[in-house]
């Protein structure tokens, strides 16, 4: 039984990590109606930034959260303004898909060119130290991610519910024409939203960096799981993403032990396909998932 509960604990911690990566993805989808295939590469950019700054300056990765978050916010703003915004009114969905797919390919390979295919480990500064709770052990960094995941989801929720800008963002998502009639500059809203979505990934990057080595394809690994989380929770739903992340974290942890470590992704993707095909709105979707 100890093993089982240890696995559950691991799963929940992993869920915190997935949540913090997924929340930006679901935000961007929910508001801009855009599936960002380059989301994982934003994480990769953030992780390389953290790795470089930590090794060059000798600063704790967590202390780098403010600059990396800001960097990713700016990157997100630029992507939305100069690549995605011109495509918003496009006739076909496929141009938006290809724009983000192209961006993703370009970024992965740019990283390959600059840093090579090798993996680089960011100094952990104690984040990989285990804490003991009776018979259970958790890594410090995982606890930090879990807590940060809750804080980010909660903070975003409050921001969207309580502030004028947050409400304007929701209004734009629910009815973009009506939002314009309220005097909302929807292009500005989209740019800010993409910036916030990217900034979330920036925070995730500083927390993930001490735990996992960075490589050009690190984003692909995490973002495929993030897509599963987001579809499971319901595209566009913040708390859906959080609960979806915990579920996928548990599935990852338990199936890796009880089925086979190399088949846990098969289980996760099987859940993904099942949700897409049977209930495309996800657990908490608003009935708009199949758009």
């Amino acid at each position: 039984m100890t093993v089982f509960w240890q696995l559950v604990l691991n799963g929940l911690m992993l869920g915190g990590l997935f949540a913090i990566i997924s929340v930006g993805l679901t935000l961007i989808f929910g508001i801009i109606r855009l599936v960002n295939f380059a989301h994982g590469e934003l994480l990769m950019v953030g992780m390389y930034a953290t790795f470089l700054l930590t090794t060059q300056l000798g600063v704790h990765p967590y202390a780098l959260a403010p600059p990396v978050v800001l960097l990713l916010f700016v990157v997100g703003v630029l992507i939305q303004r100069f690549i995605l915004q011109p495509l918003l009114e496009a006739r076909d969905h496929h141009v938006q898909i290809f724009a983000t797919v192209g961006l993703s390919t370009a970024l992965i390979n740019l990283a390959l060119l600059l840093f090579g295919a090798d993996i680089h480990s960011t100094p952990a500064y104690g984040a990989r130290t285990a804490l003991s709770f009776g018979p259970f052990r958790i890594l410090t960094g995982h606890v930090v991610m879990f807590v940060a995941g809750i804080l980010v989801v909660g903070g975003l929720h409050l921001f969207l519910q309580r502030t004028y800008l947050g409400r304007a963002i929701r209004a734009t998502a629910q009815h973009r024409h009506a939002a314009q009639l309220m005097g909302i500059d929807i292009n500005r809203i989209y740019i800010i939203t993409f910036g916030i979505g990217a900034a979330c990934v920036g925070l995730a990057a500083t927390l993930v960096a001490p735990m996992y080595p960075v490589s050009p394809t690190v984003g692909t690994y995490f973002v495929l799981t993030a897509f599963v989380v987001v579809v499971l929770g319901g595209m566009g739903s913040l708390h859906g993403a959080f609960i979806g992340a915990l579920i996928i974290g548990l599935v990852d942890s338990l199936s890796g032990y009880y089925i086979a470590p190399d088949l846990k992704e098969v289980v996760i993707f099987a859940i993904f396909l099942l949700i897409l095909l049977v209930r495309p709105t996800g657990l908490f979707g608003l009935g708009r998932g199949s758009e």
């Binding site: 004028y164 304007a168 929701r170 629910q174 009506a178 939002a179 309220m182 005097g183 909302i184």
Partner: peptide, 17 residues
């Protein structure tokens, strides 16, 4: 063209954006 998932109060507040 109301914002369907916002409360009436929020809809009115959006009017005064």
């Amino acid at each position: 063209q109301l914002f369907p998932y916002m409360t009436v109060r929020e809809n009115l507040l959006m009017g005064a954006y």
